[in-house]
Design a protein around this nucleic acid. Sequence first.
DNA 1: TGACCATATGTGCAAAGTGTCATATGAAAC
DNA 2: GTTTCATATGACACTTTGCACATATGGTCA
Lengths: 194, 194
Amino acid sequence: MALRDAILVSLGDGPMSGYDLAKHFDETIGFFWRATHSQIYRELAKLKDRGLVTSEHVPQSGRPNRILYSVTDKGREALLEWSRQPAAADPVKDDFLVRLYGLEHMDMDALLEHLNQRLEGHRERLAKFSRIAAEARPRTLGELGRLRGLEIGLRYEREWAQWCEETLQALSPENIARFDTVVPLDNKKGRPKQ
Amino acid sequence: MALRDAILVSLGDGPMSGYDLAKHFDETIGFFWRATHSQIYRELAKLKDRGLVTSEHVPQSGRPNRILYSVTDKGREALLEWSRQPAAADPVKDDFLVRLYGLEHMDMDALLEHLNQRLEGHRERLAKFSRIAAEARPRTLGELGRLRGLEIGLRYEREWAQWCEETLQALSPENIARFDTVVPLDNKKGRPKQ
DNA sequence: TGACCATATGTGCAAAGTGTCATATGAAAC
DNA sequence: GTTTCATATGACACTTTGCACATATGGTCA
């Protein structure tokens, strides 16, 4: 139940509406935790019921009114209590690695293409994170923590990018040629090319 | 919907029972994908309904009978088709990084303790993966793919371990002393020590 | 003898998460 | 003029996931 806490942490930066939070989850905190707007609105309703946040209606002209949420003392206490609980280690769940595990049964051309796409994504995020990290000058504890988060994101993207390059090399036609002597039974239809 | 495919890939190694698969998910494929036995049994039932696997009852003496599942041609086709679909990038979801983001609102002592625990886990898995990788001599495409999977696991654990060390350093009492001038309002009860 | 463990397959239920639709409005693009 | 976009909140259906429980049996250990 960490969506609750991800929201409370986000509201620590100041009052936000559900819409703001959804954007915040897409951008800032998005590397660590994801949530859709429907999930967020539902969770906000629960948080309000339990008294962890308060809401305030802000009329707007032209656009729909906003509902600004703020953390209460009870909410801050809940956060503190949460931080004492053991942190759930996030299990990696990766489609692509499952495919690699069953490499013999896959469409190799498609796999290489996906690998290239993936490499590109990792490179882009690596460049973005590097740029932000280079300019960071943490002055508060909060900023220090966020910089450490950025740092693991950076390492993560860097390693994945390098791994993609290595894997593209390892799975290049020249390199897999010698493995092709072992053709699995079920690939008679599956791999017409090469 | 990749649990389906993770099961089909696992069954590519040969017929297995639900119980076998659950163990397989705990051990071999566990770094990429996780599933509990209840999830697996339910998914197997669905797969059988759709004709992607067949089942065979194997009587045993003493223990409950096993039900061995095998992939059908239709199942192999489904796998191949799946491998052509874009691979879903796995969103990182990490309690601990959310806490770091809201570092000002957390219990620092507890956080440092969790960080140490985490470091230990990463080190253990790093050692384990290194050991396995050192002995690997891939002879088939499948083995090559599994080695590549192991390689990213290794890199992942290595970077996390290093990051934990760096972060422990960065959040050591000496280093955060100068940040302590900015004491958040809500920490009056939260951080009695230090 | 009784508790517990490993094997083996399942069900029930609640929580968590995803995707789509509904509603409302002004501004900009075509 | 009509579509589309950005803002803004919410309902609803659906799937996925995880936990606890149910059932069955033989072996091990205290």
